[in-house]
Computed example of a mutant assay.
Amino acid sequence: MTTKSPITWKRIGTLALSLTLAWGLGPVYAQSGVSAAAASSTCGSGDHGLSATLKKGSGVEDKHLQFTDIDFLNNTTGRAAGEGFLIGTSNAGCTWQSIYTGQWQFMQIDFPNNVNGFALAQMKDSAKTYLIHTTDGGSHWNRLDTPGMQFKRIDFKNKNEGYGYTYNGAYRTQDGGLSWIKIHTPANTRSVAFTTNKQGYAVQVVPGSGYQLLRTADGGKNWTTSLKVASATWNGADLYANGKQVWAVLYGDAGMSQQSYSLYASGNEGRSWRQIFAQSTAGGGPAPGGSNVGKGKGPADPGGHPGNMSLIGDQTAYLSGGSPAAGKVGIGRSYDTGSTWKNIDLKDPGYSSRISFPSAQTGWLVVTSDNSPAVYQTTDGGTSWVQKMLLPSERD
């Protein structure tokens, strides 16, 4: 099924061609009703004249717009997704354009190149998650059938090869999501990540004991336990891997708008691990493995909730976070696979966020909470941030 934006577009001849070459996001069109003043707004300011178009096209004219994810191919070109819309930039957020508006409520976007992209999305008033695919940069989307597979995360290495992860399993595709091969994973698996068809990692729950971190070097045929983490509760996990580095977020309980969780890192393909921190909270109780060596908190303390991670090379890692209790967002970072760790708060409102770092120093953060939905850029590894897009919040 193909879903097309309901917006009417008008080609602008030679100007459109020049913008296409400059922006790299595919053909650029002028939207009916967008004024010349909005098109020439100050670099990186406000909503870039897009709010009215996005609200109308996504069908939320009587509600507020909300971001859900962000994905950058390089330091200048990327996309930010929301509930019923997708926007893009190819000049580092100086200007943004509407790419898609319609029925799809994006949850995660993944573009292996500037033309082919994949997303997990829902439809309005439906809890079912679909895998969808675009071949024109995101303007139009086709639904891909995934019978019996409810993906919670996708990771495409290129336009053909990728992985889909469910709550307790993993699948691999070699034809752009048209068909999937189930990967053998241990019983009671709660998160999986593969860097190649052979090298993979899993988090396993052991009732009455806690979590186990495992690795495979033969595509899941055999799994080896490399770390056991004691925990009285086991409420899920997230795994991230790139090159030789692997990171595991292990969740404890949550309560009073606070989240207990621990962060572990490996710099040698999961053979050995170190605990980076164990964030125990009054509302959530002890963090997994919190009685061992872990000290400190995650980003956006107090009681911050983790967002997602971006890994660069074999050593650099970033973790986003947000604190409903404090009404702020932030990141944590390491340049040495967790030997040292630093948390940095953004001095801007919000309580949940996601990040995309295409390089070690340049990254993007999107506030996904409904207060002050905005996109920020850093060029110094998260030490300072500049706002590049701001949509009207629920309080406006």
Rank of each mutant, 00 (worst) to 15 (best):
W273V: 01
L391I: 00
S352T: 09
S353H: 04
I331E: 01
Q122W: 07
A317P: 15
F156L: 11
G210C: 14
V246R: 01
S32H: 02
W385Q: 08
S353G: 10
H64T: 10
Q174W: 11
T3G: 04
K297T: 15
G26W: 07
R143G: 01
M309H: 01
R354K: 15
S352I: 03
S393R: 00
T166F: 11
M1I: 00
W104D: 01
Q108M: 01
Y130A: 08
G283T: 05
S266K: 05
G78E: 09
G338S: 04
L65C: 10
A254C: 05
Q174D: 13
A230F: 12
Y251W: 13
T20M: 11
K228Y: 13
T68N: 09
T89W: 06
R333Q: 11
Q150R: 09
I331H: 07
S98H: 00
Q387C: 09
N343E: 14
A374W: 08
D175V: 03
G290R: 15
Y167G: 02
D125T: 03
S126V: 05
F118Y: 15
Q245M: 00
T378E: 03
S323Y: 13
L50K: 13
G252R: 04
G327N: 06
T316M: 06
S260M: 02
A254I: 04
P288S: 02
N308K: 07
G298H: 12
G298V: 07
S40D: 04
L144G: 02
S90L: 00
L65F: 14
F277C: 04
P186R: 03
G84M: 04
T8Q: 13
A22I: 05
G252L: 12
D301V: 01
S262E: 07
Q174N: 10
Q150T: 14
R215K: 12
A22L: 08
S209N: 10
G164Q: 08
D348T: 09
G13C: 04
F67A: 13
F67P: 11
G13Y: 11
Y29H: 06
M123S: 08
P112M: 07
P288I: 05
N113R: 12
P324H: 02
Y351G: 03
A121D: 06
Y240M: 07
S231V: 07
G363V: 01
G330I: 07
L144N: 02
G252S: 03
A326C: 07
Q66E: 15
L21G: 11
R354G: 04
L120M: 11
R190M: 14
G49N: 06
K55I: 00
E161C: 03
L365Y: 09
I12L: 03
E269I: 00
G137P: 15
G57D: 03
V366W: 08
V366K: 06
Q258H: 00
Y130V: 01
T3V: 14
A39C: 04
N116T: 15
F67W: 12
L17W: 09
L239M: 12
K182M: 07
T42W: 12
N75L: 07
L390T: 02
R11Y: 11
A325S: 06
G220K: 14
P147E: 10
T379G: 03
S257I: 01
A16C: 05
S280R: 05
W23Q: 08
A170D: 13
Q212K: 11
I183Q: 15
K244R: 12
N75A: 13
T378Q: 08
S353K: 01
T195A: 05
V229R: 14
Y165T: 04
T362I: 08
